[in-house]
């Protein structure tokens, strides 16, 4: 299999979340993290989930990843129910989860080595392709602790993309970065997404970020976590986080979000 063939396999997938609920039982009592969530995502679509912390965004992402099971409801990729974690859905977690005992290249190779049907040489070629895609080909042999926060997230992105998943799940991947680095990554992520056309679900509590990246922005409100409203963002790409058009969209979404939060407070 050549690199081109490998990159051409696995088209992006359609994702459907139907009536998913999840309650956590803790010592302090019950927390309903998700309340009958339904969400459909098209092939190759970039969807942003926005809401204040504690509204169940990570929980939903983990359920889609197959790392947690919903109490009720179903999640399907292309009509197939999700039964556990799988290579077709890769995750970028909120905290950096790069393995400190491996160098940059071996981190990217980790998932590739577990993917059948490729020779060692092909795996290396694929890993190199993705490191190049995120602009870190000259850092192959660096240790993880030698990278800046932004570089770490780039490696994480390369590692998640390398096995060629059909869906990419990103949980506030840029939340811990400084504004400048983040802006760079917005540009890179959009470029990479246009090149590789994955279905992406991107979680954030930053409305502007959501408007910048998403085709669609889905608003969540907490206690219990519910979907409140959806916005389409049809600005041309690549989008600049500082543009005026984008600011208008962001303001509109922000206003809606605040409204929902006020309402849910009143209900409590």
């Amino acid at each position: 299999m050549t690199l081109q063939q490998e990159l051409a396999t696995s088209p992006s997938a359609k994702l459907s979340v139907k009536d998913v609920s999840k309650t956590f039982h803790t010592r302090g009592g019950r927390v309903q993290a998700l309340d009958r969530i339904s969400l459909n995502v098209n092939e190759g679509e970039f969807v942003c989930l926005v809401g204040p912390s504690g509204c169940g965004k990570s929980t939903l992402l983990n359920i889609i990843a197959g790392l947690e099971t919903p109490d009720e409801g179903t999640v399907q990729t292309d009509g197939q129910p999700i039964l556990g974690p799988g290579r077709d859905r890769m995750v970028m977690f909120q905290e950096p989860a790069l393995f400190p005992w491996l160098d940059v290249f071996s981190n990217v190779m980790f998932g590739l080595k577990l993917k059948p049907g490729l020779s060692t040489a092909e795996r290396k070629e694929v890993a190199q392709y993705y490191l190049k895609l995120v602009g870190l080909e000259s850092f192959q042999h660096a240790n993880i602790h030698e990278l800046s926060g932004g570089m770490k997230q780039r490696v994480t992105l390369a590692r998640a993309m390398a096995p060629n998943p059909r869906v990419l799940l990103m949980d506030e991947p840029f939340a811990a970065l400084d504004a400048l680095t983040r802006e760079q990554l917005y540009g890179d992520l959009q470029r990479i997404w246009q090149e590789r056309r994955k279905t992406i679900i991107f979680v954030t509590h930053n409305v502007r970020e959501a408007a910048c990246l998403g085709d669609r922005v889905v608003l969540f409100s907490p206690h219990p976590g519910r979907i409140r409203e959806e916005f389409r963002v049809s600005l041309p790409r690549p989008r600049d986080i500082n543009s005026v058009d984008l600011a208008e969209h962001a303001t509109e979404i922000m206003r809606a979000l605040k409204g929902h939060l006020r309402n849910s407070e009143v209900q409590e």
């Binding site: 990843a65 197959g66 790392l67 974690p85 799988g86 290579r87 859905r89 890769m90 995750v91 977690f93 905290e95 989860a97 393995f99 980790f110 998932g111 577990l114 993917k115 590692r159 096995p163």
Partner: peptide
């Protein structure tokens, strides 16, 4: 850190691996 195990699981790593 349990995040390592979770990340590995999404990449297809299981039990002995």
């Amino acid at each position: 850190n349990p995040i390592y195990v979770r990340a590995a699981r999404t990449m297809g790593s299981r039990r002995l691996h």
